[in-house]
Design a binder for these strands. Structure first.
Length: 487
RNA sequence: GGGCCGGUAGCUCAAUGGUAGAGCAGCGGCCUUUUAAGCCGUUGGUUGUGAGUUCGAGUCUCACCCAGCCCA
């Protein structure tokens, strides 16, 4: 090791790198094949069993003529014990000057220390990758939000619970795929670049295709392409993909987010309620091993309990009547507006230009949805709210629709899909109305070729993960949440 | 877009307008079963950026950047 009087931690590490090279050691290897993972070595312990393991150095305890280090791979950590008289003076000196965060491969035999910890008695080691920068502190972890999000790899290195969240997110998505494959659904991929962004009301991102010389939009929903596939005879299909909405960022909104949509020909909204309930219950049982989910604060105190055992079904109008009065839908629109503003104190939430259904919508959004912690299917919404669904035969002011609310948020909408091309055109034209929204003629032509009756759902995967994994910010379930670029 | 809070060593954090500190990490020394190892010594700073007030600014003022929370 050089006696360089450098003051930068990076310079010190670079000097160590040069020192290794000067000894003929390559600090960056192409390959090292461990016999097993660190956690497996600990789990399958027999005294004296030879192992070869690889990992990042996360701690070291120097004892003079011997030394302990911890190495860690994705599975976990294991302690390695090096002794000067076993590996020799020269190797021991190199070993002693390895840095926290360096990757090494070790060869040795398993033993148990005096304090009962399964460890590797080192016979030889290989440097695999030198870390030129110091890792975050071992004890405090990494707290700085900005660094955690911008350099998520440091967050994952320093904070095991963060890593667990993302491994569980992966397990959730795996379960979603198995669930639908088991039910005979086909996984499809549809365009993220669309000439007309449809299927939802949201501001799109715009881009330009040079060769075609035209603009495209990043999709805001998957729906309209999935329905084309129903027309094409794919009766059960699903897609897990990114949607993009050019709107504000918040604890619940990221500009790109992951959406699941699934469609089932010859099903309806009731079919899809069963699907959502089975899906989410199955995920909770398989990934979390429970249907009762506890959200905790920083001190570990339970702040919220979500019980997924029973799924309530309630009509939108009934829920509104519960909080706004039994005669809510019998009085005049003017009276509804007055009550909402004066009696329900929603003045700040009701804009002057709001239509009648939007006034009721504000009542639902502000006073009802946040209270729906345990799963509730809110059904039969006013038809104005959902232009792509079929009317309810018994009450044509509503549509055959549900919004599954859990954790005070809408997690999943679903409905009996509109398959009448003439009614669909009228609804979309009326909706486009004042706005300069273009009609997706190609979609309407597809409907005119005949779409089977079908049920469909969407599930916001990020919000589902927040609910299941006890995270209050969408940024904590997205590996690289959107931040303003620095520099 | 509005309000509130924050940005100090690699990390976690201190510092009445008056010499920028601690713990850990790093570096050197001692120590062959430690584990937040221990003991001794020691390096490390353009206090987010830019102006201003002041004899003197991490601290006060203004603008800006970035981030977080709340609201719209």
């Amino acid at each position: 090791m050089s006696m360089d009087e450098t003051n930068s931690l990076i310079e010190q590490r670079k000097a160590k790198l040069a020192s290794l090279r000067s000894k003929g050691i390559d600090p960056f290897r192409n390959k090292f094949t461990p016999t097993e993972k660190c956690a497996e070595a600990r789990a399958n312990y027999t005294e004296g069993r030879p192992v070869e393991l690889a990992g990042r150095i996360t701690a070291h305890r120097d004892m003079g003529k011997s030394m302990f280090i911890d190495i860690k791979d994705q599975s976990g950590r294991i302690q390695v014990y090096a002794q000067k008289n076993v590996i020799g003076d020269e190797q021991f000196d190199i070993f002693r000057h390895l840095d926290l965060a360096d990757f090494i491969g070790v060869k040795g035999t398993l033993f148990t220390t005096r304090t009962g910890e399964v460890s590797v008695k080192l016979e030889s080691f290989t440097t695999l990758a030198k870390s030129l920068r110091p890792p975050p502190a071992k004890w405090h972890g990494l707290e700085d939000m900005e660094v955690r999000y911008r350099q998520r790899y440091l967050d994952l290195i320093a904070n095991d619970d963060v890593k667990t969240v993302f491994l569980q997110r992966s397990a959730i998505i795996h379960e979603i795929r198995s669930f639908f494959h088991n039910r005979g659904y086909v996984e499809v991929e549809t365009p993220a670049m669309q000439p007309i962004p449809g299927g939802a009301a949201a501001q799109p991102f715009k881009t330009f295709h040079n060769a075609l010389g035209c603009e495209f939009y990043l999709r805001i929903a998957l729906e309209l392409y999935h329905k084309r596939l129903l027309v094409g005879g794919i009766d059960r299909l699903f897609e897990i993909g990114k949607n993009f909405r050019n709107e504000g960022l918040s604890r619940r909104h990221n500009p790109e987010f992951t959406m699941l949509e699934a469609y089932c020909a010859f099903g309806d909204y009731a079919t899809m309620m069963e699907t959502v309930e089975s899906l989410i219950k199955g995920i909770a049982e398989k990934v979390l091993g429970t249907l009762v989910i506890e959200h905790k604060d920083a001190e570990g105190k339970v702040t919220k309990t979500i019980d997924l055992t029973t799924w309530r079904r309630a009509k939108y109008k009934d829920l509104v009547r519960e909080v706004a009065g039994q005669d809510w839908f019998d009085v005049s629109p003017e009276e509804r507006r007055r009550r909402a503003i004066e009696d329900l104190k929603l003045a700040g939430d009701i804009a002057a230009g709001y239509e009648d259904f939007e006034v009721t919508g504000a009542v639902f959004e502000k006073l009802i949805e946040p209270t729906l912690i345990n799963p509730t299917f809110v059904t039969h919404l006013p038809k104005e709210l959902v232009p792509l669904a079929k009317l309810t035969p018994e009450d044509p002011t509503t549509v055959e629709v549900f919004e599954c609310c859990i954790n005070g948020q809408e997690i999943s909408p679903g409905y009996t899909e509109q398959n009448d091309p003439i009614q669909q055109r009228e609804t979309l034209e009326h909706q486009a109305g004042g706005e300069q929204q273009k009609l997706d003629e190609d979609f309407l032509v597809a409907l005119e070729h005949g779409m089977p009756p079908a049920g469909g759902i969407g599930i916001g995967i990020d919000r589902l993960c927040m609910m299941l994994l006890g995270q209050e910010s969408i940024r904590d379930v997205i590996l690289f949440p959107q931040l303003k670029p620095k520099l």
